[in-house]
Nucleic acid binder design. Structure first.
Lengths: 164, 164
DNA sequence: ACCTTGTAGTTAACGTGTGAATTACATCTT
DNA sequence: AAGATGTAATTCACACGTTAACTACAAGGT
């Protein structure tokens, strides 16, 4: 019953008026997405920390491994990392020799970023543990629910990112 | 068809072997949650920027407005903010007089944090726009889908945060 | 009383998120 | 060819996320 009140975004004001309120923090999409991400990432962080890489560096590596060499802008989009962050991340990962960069000829601004053999090796080393973590999440949450949640998130992203 | 391949987490190796892979970045829960949050927050950021408050300060204000005075630890949990961040946020918001703190007698460590009248005024000022933004999201994504997504996120959070 | 253990909150160090400004280079226009 | 406009990437400034270390205080045990 209380839950339904939150659901409908109604509330009773001090003088008994029925007033319309925005979602409480208990039923707000931004908060729910944030918390959900937190509980999921909590499972991955120990693995990443053991190998001294950040979550964002890990995303960059995986995107490059999956799609092949990319320019910075495209990489930033695919890894959901903003350009200023990517600049710093690339710098750090070049020094650790997980990725390499090659200037694109005919355009002095662009550079192609590639994963190095060491980067591939790191991904392969972490893959089993990564799979195990995902499996454990699916066992707890339910595989069907998991797939459905991914579908709904994709749909949300789609509906909100088509600009008009 | 291609989508089903991602869904099942199978892939065909270089030599034709059927190998098991972790989710690609296209179907990973952490990435989907991150992107979903991004597209949603994009709608709120201009509003917050106009009033020179951060997303996190906004969360703190709303939690205090909804629940009344809280100690820092409880506030941090409810707003999904880590203690070190909360320390900085409280400092900034005390200076701008959006919140006040009062020592708890009988325990020199704790302090009760409360929203000030100016804080309440800010929330009331932003409420109409906030409601309009949520309404627009529901129109694009669908109210029923929205509710269902919230339910599924809550369920995920529940299933992953029960420690065992 | 003293010491140990536990808890609330802060500080420190480093990486990332964010918006604005800047640099370097391409392309378009005339 | 020169200037205007556009684009890729970087830099800057400031706030937050994250972990670890630390301070201050409280509660329990002996």
């Amino acid at each position: 019953m209380i839950r339904d009140i939150y659901r409908e975004s109604y509330w009773i004001g001090f003088f008994g008026d029925l007033i319309l309120l925005p979602p409480s923090t208990r039923r707000s999409l931004p908060m729910a997405l944030l918390r959900a991400r937190e509980v999921i990432m909590a499972h991955f962080r120990p693995m990443l920390a053991r190998h001294d890489i950040t979550e964002q560096q890990w995303r960059v590596l995986r995107v490059l491994a999956e799609t092949g060499p990319l320019e910075a802008t495209e990489l930033a989009n695919r890894a959901s990392i903003l350009p200023p962050s990517l600049t710093r991340i690339i710098k750090a990962m070049e020094e650790r020799e997980f990725i390499t960069r090659n200037k694109v000829k005919d355009d002095g601004r662009r550079a192609l970023l590639s994963i190095s053999p060491a980067g591939v090796a790191l991904i392969e080393e972490l893959s089993p543990e990564r799979t195990a973590i995902y499996d454990a999440i699916e066992r707890r949450y339910g595989a069907a629910e998991h797939e459905r949640l991914l579908d709904m998130l994709e749909s949300l992203i789609q509906s909100e990112s088509t600009e008009e």
